[in-house]
Design a protein around this nucleic acid. Structure first.
Length: 426
RNA sequence: GGAGAGGUGGCCGAGCGGUUUAAGGCAGCUGCCUGCUAAGCAGUUGUGGGGGCAACCUCACCUCGGGUUCGAAUCCCGACCUCUCCGCCA
């Protein structure tokens, strides 16, 4: 949510932001409504003040059992009716205004390149080298099938297409990666580990900005109007919804493992094979609540925390800065980490590290009291995947595949795999 | 699933139609007193909007949204949340 005051004073900035993102919201209408509201508010407040005064008099007369009371009441009955109508007008205007305001995305940070699509993203750096093979590298799909660690067919009987069923060392690999990442972030990077609910209320998704735009992409429990989380960002950011935090407890770092549920509506036919686009995947998420003046540095640190996962596992990746068209609704800036999938022969997004500035904090009402008192200020929220599984498993299997069909396990992960150093066929 | 109770300021807690611009207490802050501390006394303390150069003025806010009324924390309806008992259950 943008501050209406900010919109008033920066109309062109807001309009440019919408153009750059390729989105449309009727800002002029919003401003007209705002003017109208201010005008009516002034009127209604004066009328209300008058009414309050008279009502107070009536009260005094009643208590003194004076006979004039009923006459006074009759006098203001009509006036009171009239100003109630005016009040309803204002409510209607406010409703319209809010409906528009909730559709306005965050303003892109000045560092965000203007662009129309992924081709306009800018590579920031890359790490490591793509692995070389003296045989034709296979896709994770084939590797997983021949090793019998992931079943893509039977799972359709259970949940339909777009799901995965992990067996044996495949299931263990998933669990090992989760524990490896959680341990890294909680012990080395000082995040507080959280195990949140996977089902959340509608308001939480509005707070973080997934709603109202992405409702079609969510799994909904209609009876209760509850949603399966598309990312742990939602429960983690909403931990402090409606709170005033104290200056001294910031910054707050949280991390959580959760599965993520996405309908991927409209993406049928794309990437239907394997693990690249599935309806349920595991992810470690990092979320920060910080003071505004530190949010730029905090984003860089968050990105490094996520990158370290891939570095320790020896997976080649690159970092790209998303352009305006690719930026998510609530984000002011965002880095994607893309890991190299040797069998696919392309990079796959495994992390988005974003700063939301005060956008989510305003929607969700998360503020803090600055040191030494003064007005309450909105915190800045940030988050990033650290990192998303499924796609990382793709890169993992394709990077560490061997000519004999086995997959070696890099050293840092072996203790998590019960000491195993490779996944063997059979 | 059934029955009941309740949601009041930073916290506890009264109020259940008109000096409530929310009693009282705790905590915090500021004075006074005191060699210092404690105690005591006095004052003060929220959020958001609108107006003014300013001290200040004004409107709203007792979980949220509707309604009744000249007037609602207080009465009515609906949501959400919390608690107790019964049933079911890993």
């Amino acid at each position: 949510m943008l501050d209406i005051k900010f919109i008033r004073e920066n109309v062109e900035v807001v309009k440019k932001s919408l153009r750059d993102r390729g989105m449309k919201v009727d800002i002029d209408k919003l401003l007209v409504l705002d003017e109208e509201k201010k005008k009516l508010l002034l009127q209604v407040e004066e009328q209300r003040r008058q009414r309050n005064l008279i009502s107070e008099e009536v009260g005094k007369l009643k208590q003194a059992s004076a006979p004039d009371a009923d006459k006074k009441i009759a006098e203001i009955r009509v006036a009171s009716q009239e100003f109630k109508e005016l009040e309803n007008n204002i409510k209607e205007i406010v409703r319209e205004q809010e409906e528009l305001a909730i559709l306005i995305p965050n303003i892109p940070h000045q560092s965000v390149p203007v662009g129309d699509g992924s081709e306009d993203n800018v590579e920031v750096r890359s790490w490591g080298e793509p692995p070389r093979f003296d045989f034709a590298p296979r896709s994770h799909y084939e590797i997983a099938k021949s090793l019998k660690i992931i079943d893509f067919e039977r799972v359709a009987k259970i949940s339909g297409s777009g799901f995965a069923l992990y067996y044996g060392l495949g299931a263990k690999l998933e669990r090992a990666l989760i524990n490896f990442m959680l341990d890294l972030h909680t012990t080395k990077h000082n995040y507080i580990e959280v195990s949140p609910p996977f089902i959340v209320k509608r308001g939480c998704l509005t707070g973080t900005g997934q709603l109202p735009l992405l409702e079609d992409d969510m799994y909904i429990c209609e009876k209760d109007d509850l949603f399966l989380i598309p990312t742990a960002e939602v429960p983690l950011t909403n931990i402090h919804v409606g709170e005033v935090l104290s200056d001294s407890e910031l910054p707050l770092y949280y991390c959580a493992y959760t599965p993520c549920f996405r309908r991927e509506a409209g993406s049928y036919g794309k990437e239907t094979k394997g693990l690249i686009r599935i309806h349920q995947f595991d992810k470690i998420e990092l979320v920060k609540f910080v003071k505004p003046e530190t949010s730029e540095d905090e984003l860089e640190l968050l990105l490094k925390d996520a990158e370290e996962v891939l570095q320790l596992l020896g997976l080649h990746y690159r970092v790209v800065r998303l352009c305006t068209a690719e930026l998510s609704f609530a984000a002011s800036r965002c880095y994607d980490i893309e890991v190299w999938a040797a069998g696919e022969g392309r990079y796959l997004e495994v992390s988005s590290c974003s700063s939301f500035s005060d956008f989510q904090a305003m929607r969700a009402g998360i503020r803090y009291r600055p040191e030494g008192g003064g007005k309450l200020k909105y915190v800045h929220t940030l988050n990033g995947s650290g990192v998303a599984l499924a796609r990382m498993v793709v890169a993992f299997l394709e990077t560490y595949q061997q000519a004999d069909g086995s997959v070696t396990i890099p050293e840092p992960l072996r203790t998590y795999m019960g000491g195993a150093d490779k996944i063997l066929e059979g």
